[in-house]
Nucleic acid binder design. Structure first.
Length: 310
DNA sequence: AAAGCGGTCAACCGCATGGGA
DNA sequence: GTCCCATGCGGTTGACCGCTT
């Protein structure tokens, strides 16, 4: 079984398309549709292979292509969809009208990957990066390798790490594939990965919800393969809904951190293209960055958590 | 002014997949 | 069931551009 040759014809042009070639392709498709891409170049009078014509059309010339910068909502959708679907760019593109898989792939590789990395989130797993240990390394630098609880820099770092732990928990809850084990029986007896600090309350359906998928769509939550494989069933609701967060504070006190969690809760990140669904008042990144920048959030409770775990 | 460098993105390459014979 | 073909898809490449030195 041989692979069909596509671009092995002699003299077939490669490289950037000229405006004349674009015009020929647009004109031909407008009149005849693309039909067989293999035969199209000959019929349209183009010295290109069919594959090249198809790519040029689907990625650039199609009339319904939406060009220009990605909006914050689109960014958030891509990140969320990527956390669910991985590098399946065409699937992701099918949920973003007017955007091509190539465009989304490029945008991911040039912008979003870096953005997540800067936030300390692993763009592949969508979990906090394990090399967040660089904070611990920094701590060791400050303390000459020996943690000194009386050192104010050490305390600051502990506060930072406490916030990062909070961020990690938030990320786990925001990412349905990691939030599921707290709410779904998957026959593997999974437990809340971090039961000491948070409980994820069950939503009415017990499922996180994402827009644009068809009812009953199943996707493999392969990010959890190491924890036990199961199918993640997308429900037909229109928007992704965060499970309610319940903060287990030993002294029952509230803090700015709690308030900010509340703020994130009351502004669920939405991915729907349905105009009836709510839209986010601010991006999740704003909320998390705000949380990360909040000096007051490094109260004693968070330090206590850390001092008991470091 | 120009060489170097990094970021961006259109286009290519080759493997995967689905459907018809 | 097997073969062949067309198309889809994701990774990679390389040209171009703007910024820095």
């Amino acid at each position: 079984m041989g692979r069909s040759p596509c671009c092995d014809e002699n003299g077939v042009k490669k490289g950037p398309w000229t405006p004349e070639e674009d015009e020929k392709l647009i004109e031909f498709v407008a009149k005849n549709g693309h039909g067989s891409w293999r035969n199209l170049p000959k019929l349209a009078g183009l010295n290109r292979c069919g594959k090249s014509c198809r790519l040029r059309w689907t990625n650039y010339l199609r009339p319904d292509i939406k060009r220009g910068k990605f909006s914050e909502e689109e960014e958030a959708s891509i990140i969320k969809l990527h956390s669910l679907l991985g590098n399946r760019w065409s699937k992701i593109a099918s949920h973003l009208p007017g955007r091509t898989d190539n465009e989304i792939k490029n945008f991911w590789n040039t912008h979003l990957r870096k953005k997540l990395l800067q936030m300390g989130i692993d763009p592949n797993t969508h979990k906090p990066r394990t090399d967040l240990n660089h904070f611990l390394n920094l701590s060791q630098l400050f303390n000459n390798g020996i943690p000194n609880p009386l050192n104010s820099d050490h305390l600051k770092l502990q506060a930072e790490i406490a916030k990062l732990q909070l961020l990690q928990n938030l990320c786990q809850l925001l990412n349905p594939t990691t939030a599921i084990p707290t709410t779904i029986n998957n026959n593997n007896g999974l437990q809340n990965p971090n039961p000491s600090q948070f409980q994820a309350g069950s939503s009415s359906t017990g499922f996180a919800q994402v827009s644009g998928f068809e009812d009953g769509d199943k996707i493999k939550a392969n990010k959890l393969e190491e924890m036990g494989s199961f199918d993640y069933v997308i429900q037909p609701e229109n928007y992704y809904q965060l499970p309610p967060l319940i903060l287990e504070s030993p002294d029952g006190s509230t803090s700015n951190v709690n308030q900010q969690i509340e703020s994130i809760e009351t502004n669920p990140l939405c991915f729907s293209t349905n105009s009836n669904s709510p839209t986010p008042s601010s991006s999740i990144f704003d909320s998390l960055e705000s949380l990360m920048n909040d000096d007051e959030a490094s109260g004693s409770y968070w330090k206590n958590i850390l001092q008991s775990t470091i």
